[in-house]
Design a protein around this nucleic acid. Structure first.
Lengths: 340, 340
DNA sequence: ATGAAAGCGCTAACAT
DNA sequence: ATGTTAGCGCTTTCAT
């Protein structure tokens, strides 16, 4: 009702041309103060607000950013990581007056169906896309469509795309070094899904720390997980017979699974087994025991992702931007540092 | 690059008018098969896809639905409920070829700033809005703007708006009745945030069950929480001195807090204290002990929300739709039923 | 079956 | 400072 108003009607009621009305609407110069005043009056009174679609068509951008979360999105909403990421991105969108479009690409068919909408510059000004599994061609396809793009996470292939990531290698390295410093020598790891660069990088950091401190790498101490709780549980059970005294776990959610396995085995943390996790999202601090874990700044990660994207929108995408955020080891109880 | 294509160019290349090109693009009749074929050729070859914004302006709707999550959104992304809700909604949007816009209204200023965009029929075809705190005027304001709307959760005021909710009273009633059946007579509750209809309704169900089974209501056995972990922890501590033998907790996340308090107090679950939660999201089954809890079909909740909205879009919003989904008590270990 | 022309609601040269 | 005019890229009457 209050919405069928058009700029033309506002102009008429104010006794000016549509152009002038547009000028005051957009706070542009070259309008006599009194006229401006009058038009503003009308706008107020009528509660007019311009049709965003019409404006978008005229100015050739929509002020809408897309966030696309590819495959494996069942994990997506089981891990507290993604909600926080979304929150950071949404927050930044608000701050910069952009609207956020959310695209969950659960199946290949969905991906096919959605691709045109996503790739068309008409609807979305740009895209933030969560990096998928290794081998996923989505980013490459989007890239050749020439859509402004920033990837959340390090892409597997070396392609000229902008991305933001956390220093996973360094984070894992910190975690494991800490364990070594505490005197552990048989340190295992529960990895994330290894078709993922994040998991690969964290394993690399684990290996690096061991190697640099002269500790042997032992295959039996590396158990594959996939970032969810059950996989942490199973991996822990698999590790137990090999008698590690400490484990670096590639995500906090998997730590919860590991804790469950340990408790069933009658083992205490950190007395019988030291644990360091990865993420430091809200549940970590309230765990029993509170988790020593590698903090990643997920909120800021999301915010910066949109800032990079906006920068690209303004200044073009060459050269590709690369941003690596630092992690920080948060020491709580699960590593046993307090009694060291 | 591949995107500057317009329908006009397609038409030219195919040697037809723009009108005809549009017809084949939209699978409309009145095109000679051979011509249709030819146009389709060109579309394929060029990889043309129509500009959604231009189309939206012409047909006067965008195929974009908005999901708005008001205030208290810090809770929003700490509780696994919302991610799942979002997933359900996103899924349904995909299925129905709609795009999902996400609006996080964290502060009153953001709400003010975003309102025009949200309320304008130009951008969004319709809205799903998570019910806010009691007293929140957002829904009322949107309603008078005449935006197609469905509320997720029961609004506090009696207003003629469509909504979908879960039967919170019945869910809580089931939970508490179960505890009574197990022989408990001193049953406490940890409520959700009481400025919320969901929390209020669950408390009502708790009271109803007690009353109908001839058990006294005792103020000291009702501890206020706010749906997050810490509040569950504190509420549990507050309850302990009053010696309940069982607690109905208004959300699983608060159960985790309660478990933490109990474990610190050296009490076992369910032997020393029986617990029933609410939600039954993924973490519930993997808890230690696995949680007896009231299952709500969150995914379906989200899906149906969009279906109601689409129905409204097609058939108008009178009368307002009201959908109440059933809950189901899932019996696991935390209530002690197995040894009863 | 096909096309010309008008229109969706706005912005932006360009002229005055 | 203001208005005229021409788009933005599509759909949709209305003729033919």
């Amino acid at each position: 009702m209050t919405d069928k108003l058009t700029l033309d009607e506002i102009a008429q009621r104010a006794g000016v041309s549509r152009t002038t009305a547009s000028r005051v609407l957009n706070n542009r110069p070259n309008v006599r103060p009194e006229v401006r005043e009058r038009v503003q009056q009308v706008i107020e009174e009528t509660g007019y607000s311009p049709n965003p679609v019409a404006r978008s068509l005229a100015i050739q951008h929509t002020h809408i950013l897309g966030l696309v979360l590819p495959r494996r999105s069942d994990t997506v909403f089981t891990d507290p990581y993604f909600p926080v990421l979304i929150q950071g991105i949404a927050q930044a969108c608000n701050d910069h007056e952009y609207t956020l479009g959310l695209f969950l690409l659960q199946t290949p068919e969905e991906e096919r169906k959605l691709l045109p909408r996503i790739a068309h510059k008409g609807l979305l000004d740009g895209l933030i896309i969560q990096v998928g599994e290794i081998g996923d061609q989505l980013i490459a396809r989007l890239l050749e469509k020439n859509v402004p793009l920033v990837v959340a996470g390090r892409p597997a292939q070396e392609i000229p795309v902008s991305y933001i990531d956390v220093d996973n290698v360094a984070g894992a390295y910190q975690a494991v070094s800490h364990l070594i410093r505490l005197g552990h020598t048989r340190i295992g790891t529960i990895t994330g899904a290894l078709n993922t660069t994040a998991a690969l990088d964290r394993r690399t950091g684990y290996e690096q720390a061991l190697r640099e401190h002269g500790l042997p790498l032992e295959d039996a101490l590396v158990a594959p997980g996939n970032f969810n709780e059950s996989s942490g549980y199973q991996a822990m059970q698999q590790l137990l017979p090999h008698r590690p005294t400490a484990i670096f776990v590639a995500s906090d959610v998997m730590v919860f699974g590991a804790l469950r396995a340990l408790s069933e085995a009658g083992l205490r943390v950190p007395e019988d087994m030291a644990l360091v996790g990865y993420d430091d999202l809200p549940p970590a601090a309230n765990a029993a025991p509170p988790l020593t874990t590698v903090h990643q700044p997920v909120l800021r990660f999301g915010e910066q992702a949109v800032e990079i994207l906006l920068d690209i929108l303004e200044n073009g995408s060459v050269p590709p931007r690369r941003v690596i955020l630092d992690t920080e080891l948060i020491i709580r109880d699960s590593c046993g540092a307090s009694q060291a």
